[in-house]
């Protein structure tokens, strides 16, 4: 089959398998939990990468991140459902569904207006959550202990290992699917729409529909990422899930990672998470300084992101479709 011939898929499979095995047998718990958080964010970044390749940047994807997180948390709180095989698909569906509805409006906008309208929608959700006392207002509330196949985990350490393996499997699957998508005709429409909308219309394809599809996909992936994040942190609240700074963080990691590969978001997110840990140890008040400085450096000196260094080191050209 041609999937076996695809070097990227082989690379992703080996990479994720290696990370999973290393994690289970070698890594200390703190690194496991950081990787879980990093990969949860990476799922959202993967969604933003699809948009970025289309020339679109959203300053409001915390909307979908928050929707995913709150869906998981509320299913536990109100329906007693903690089965991840239900809660995570539900998070994906809710975010994708809202993305589908808002997409009818959003697909008409480009550039700064696209960014701003997304921001406005995300801040509407933020405004609602902050004032909703039954959901804990600004404090949020805690997430039920998750179960898999109806089985809970007895210790925190076991929970961590299960989550870790879970996110490796889901991350691998998402990366492979997005990679396949980007290689498809629909995926090639990203470059096409970014470069020349008129030509796309005159080739017989609706630009609005192409953008709408990509938007729903990015919303769903971001929702899935938010769902995982809620489980990993065991807690949801508006400030850390829905505020505009969360959207900014997602965009930051997207730029840090670079658009070159579907593996980039996972590497970029991991660097981001490790950087955060060490930075806060060395310079407690300097975290935003480092993030902001890095963002400026990348914009001015490394527009291809971290991935461009990796691909250069591996001696290949950027894998544009």
């Amino acid at each position: 089959m041609d999937m076996i011939k695809d070097k990227t898929i082989v690379g992703l499979t080996i990479g994720f398998a290696a990370v999973a095995i290393l994690g289970v047998f070698v890594m200390p718990d703190w690194l496991l939990s950081q990787t879980v958080i990093a990969f949860a964010r990476a799922l959202a970044v993967l969604g933003l990468l699809v948009l970025w390749r289309t020339g679109l940047v959203s300053f409001g994807h915390a909307l979908y991140f928050g929707l995913g997180a709150y869906t998981v948390a509320m299913l536990g709180r109100y329906f007693g459902i903690s089965e991840v095989l239900i809660t995570l698909p539900a998070a994906t569906l809710v975010a994708g569904g809202i993305g589908f509805v808002l997409g009818f409006v959003i697909r008409r906008y480009r550039e700064i207006f696209f960014a701003m309208l997304n921001l406005a929608f995300s801040m509407v959700l933020f405004g609602i959550l902050v004032k909703t006392e039954s959901l804990g207002s600004t404090d949020g509330f805690s997430v039920e202990q998750p179960t898999l196949f109806g089985i809970g985990t007895d210790t925190a350490s076991n929970k961590l290992v299960v989550m870790y393996v879970g996110i490796c499997v889901v991350g691998w699957l998402a990366a492979v699917l997005v990679h396949r998508y980007l290689q498809s005709v629909l995926g090639s429409l990203s470059t096409a729409v970014r470069d020349n909308e008129i030509r796309v219309e005159y080739l017989g394809y609706s630009v609005a529909e192409a953008i709408h599809g990509k938007y729903v996909m990015s919303a769903a992936l971001t929702g899935l990422g938010g769902g995982f994040m809620a489980i990993a942190l065991g807690q949801v609240d508006p400030e850390s899930m829905v505020n505009w700074t969360v959207s900014g963080e997602l965009v930051f990691v997207t730029i840090l990672s670079g658009p070159g590969s579907v593996a980039a978001p996972f590497i970029g997110s991991l660097i981001f998470e490790l950087l955060r840990t060490y930075a806060t140890e060395i310079l407690p008040q300097g975290w935003q300084l480092i993030v902001g400085g890095t963002l400026l450096l990348i914009i001015f000196f490394l527009p291809g992101g971290v991935w461009s260094i990796i691909s250069k080191a591996m001696g290949r050209k950027e894998a544009e479709p």
């Binding site: 700064i112 730029i255 300097g286 935003q288 963002l295 400026l296």
Partner: peptide, 23 residues
């Protein structure tokens, strides 16, 4: 330069300036 890129750069600047306040 691209408007959206500029917003990102000023976002980076915002984060830097916010932290310098704390320092």
């Amino acid at each position: 330069r691209d408007e959206v890129l500029i917003v990102l750069a000023t976002f980076g600047l915002f984060l830097v300036l916010e932290d310098i306040i704390l320092l």
